[in-house]
Amino acid sequence: MMRGLLMAIGFLTRIPVPASVFDEAQGKGRSLAWYPAVGLLIGLLLYLLQWGMQGWSPLLVAALLLSAWVLITGALHLDGLADSADAWIGGIGDRERTLAIMKDPRCGPAGVVALVLVLLVKFAALAGSPMGVWLLLAPLLGRAVLTVAFLTTPYVRSGGLGSGLMDAPALACLSMLAMAVLFCLSAGWRGAWVLVAVAVLFLLWRRACMHRLGGMTGDTCGALAELTEAVVLVVLAAPH
């Protein structure tokens, strides 16, 4: 159990974990259930940082929070967002070309624009509204949607980073997802609106991936995580 948690932490963040946790072949599948917990851990670290900057300039707080967010995650999902944007536009509806562009390590104009826009939206949302404890919801749901994606969507790259996650124990994953939903609902109607927005985004992105690729890749999952975090922050920052 702990090995799966440590593996999830080691994969999704830059928090140091023992290298030995990656030795077990089946551990990767078990780690999927812990993705929401790792998201909550990221949120707690960001919340503590935000709490320590009370009274600071909102713009400075937003900039430092976003910088810490990127550093904690190692820009893992931002890379997937950039690759997906390049591939979606450059692939011109062609599945094989789209997949080939995703494997290209270079970042094209579409990828740069996607990165700038998503980071700008996150920054504006963080600067425009004091998130407080609600900040936990963005990274939590940004990782929970990955668990849902691997449970419900084919993975199209054999031997890819996410291929070992397809044999994850469904019951453990569903249990963790249920706890993530309950945590959001404990936030009242604001948490409910966040869940609705995330569900709509997930269904639209899954439909697009199924139509273009017949499934998902690690890059499209990274894009999903980043878009989910941005949507959550926008919903929380919007006037109520």
Score class of each variant (00 low, 15 high):
A19W: 13
Q26F: 09
L64D: 00
W56L: 02
T73G: 07
A172R: 15
S67Y: 06
M131A: 14
R143V: 04
A138L: 11
T13L: 09
G162A: 15
F150P: 02
S158M: 07
S158H: 12
Y47Q: 06
W34V: 00
W34A: 13
S129V: 05
T153G: 12
W205V: 13
H240M: 07
G142E: 02
A25T: 14
C221K: 08
S31T: 03
G162R: 03
L5N: 03
S31K: 07
L48C: 14
V194I: 13
W189H: 06
G93R: 03
A178H: 02
K122L: 01
V235Y: 08
V196P: 01
E226I: 00
L146E: 04
L165V: 05
A178V: 02
A82G: 11
D94R: 13
L32C: 05
F150K: 03
R157A: 15
A187L: 10
W69A: 14
G74P: 01
R3W: 04
A238K: 04
G222D: 12
K122V: 00
V232M: 02
Y35P: 09
T217E: 11
A199K: 03
P169N: 08
P109N: 08
E24F: 02
L32E: 01
L120Q: 06
Y47T: 07
A187V: 10
A33C: 02
V234H: 01
L171N: 10
P130G: 09
A197R: 03
L161V: 11
L136T: 08
R30Q: 12
A127F: 04
L177V: 04
W88L: 14
L236M: 08
L78W: 11
M131E: 01
V148R: 09
Q26D: 15
L201S: 07
D94I: 05
L64M: 13
F22P: 12
L6P: 05
I92H: 12
G215P: 01
L137D: 01
M7R: 15
I92Q: 12
L171Y: 00
G55Q: 10
G188S: 13
M176C: 07
F11W: 15
A192G: 12
A37P: 05
A168E: 01
G214L: 12
L44E: 06
P18L: 13
V113K: 02
V232Q: 02
L140K: 08
A197D: 02
F11R: 00
S158G: 07
A138M: 09
R30S: 12
